[in-house]
């Protein structure tokens, strides 16, 4: 009897929990592919169009919209850092910020610590290219010296010297990249590293969305 009750209780909790989630559906910009494709050859490349189906709490929203962005590059080559959280995902000229070559980062200040369930990321997607050494970390420390949780890392050869990552590299498209944060991670700051891409050595960002509450 006791066992049956336990099973029913567990199922009810699971059902209730399921009922309180929703599938993360992104608003996707128009594809703007242009130019001559450059061969993308990387050892840990995932097939195109393989964004996972991610469930997030029903009341989770994009808490990055309009939030302050800082970066390792004090003077981006083109564009402003605000473009990363302005809600515009187009790849057109004037819609992205581009940082210098080498390992660079951008950081979003969510203004208060929040539970983060998923992150959506659009690097430059007007050409099929893959960004290297993409590392995404969450922390309450703005300097990322303590309490750092890495939620994505595709640096398969540890070239960024932050540890070998097991995540796959992906080819940029207008659909963006969804990074599931499961279990959720609490933090105020989210930092995104990259180290150039398969077309050139710079680091461009069009938009970042952080789903949390």
């Amino acid at each position: 009897m006791k066992k049956t009750l336990l099973v029913i209780l567990s199922a009810t909790i699971a059902l209730a929990s399921y009922a309180q989630t929703k599938k993360l559906v992104l608003e996707v910009p128009q594809s703007q592919l242009s130019g001559t494709p450059v061969p993308v050859k990387l050892p840990n490349l995932e097939p195109k169009g393989t964004n996972p189906e991610v469930m997030i709490p029903v009341d989770a929203t994009n808490i990055a919209k309009g939030k302050k962005v800082t970066s390792s590059d004090d003077f981006p080559l083109i564009g402003e850092l605000e473009l990363v959280t302005d809600g515009d995902k187009d790849a057109a000229e004037g819609c992205y910020v581009e940082l210098m070559n080498g390992l660079q980062w951008i950081q979003i200040d969510l203004e208060k610590s929040a539970d983060i369930y998923a992150i959506a990321l659009w690097h430059y997607h007007s050409q099929e290219r893959a960004y290297k050494d993409v590392i995404v970390q969450i922390s309450d420390d703005p300097d990322f010296k303590s309490g750092v949780t890495t939620v994505f890392n595709n640096d398969d050869d540890n070239s960024a010297k932050m540890g070998v990552g097991k995540n796959m590299t992906w080819v940029e498209t207008n659909y963006g990249k969804i990074i599931e944060v499961k279990p959720s991670v609490k933090g105020r700051y989210v930092r995104f590293y990259s180290n150039g891409n398969t077309t050139n050595d710079t680091n461009a960002y069009i938009e970042v969305e952080i789903y949390g509450k």
Binding site: S31, Q32, L33, S34, D90, A92, E93, G94, C95
Partner: peptide, 13 residues
């Protein structure tokens, strides 16, 4: 090449 859209830029640029 597949169909492409026209190149655009924001008004400010």
């Amino acid at each position: 090449r597949a169909v492409t859209t026209d190149l655009t830029c924001p008004k400010k640029l």
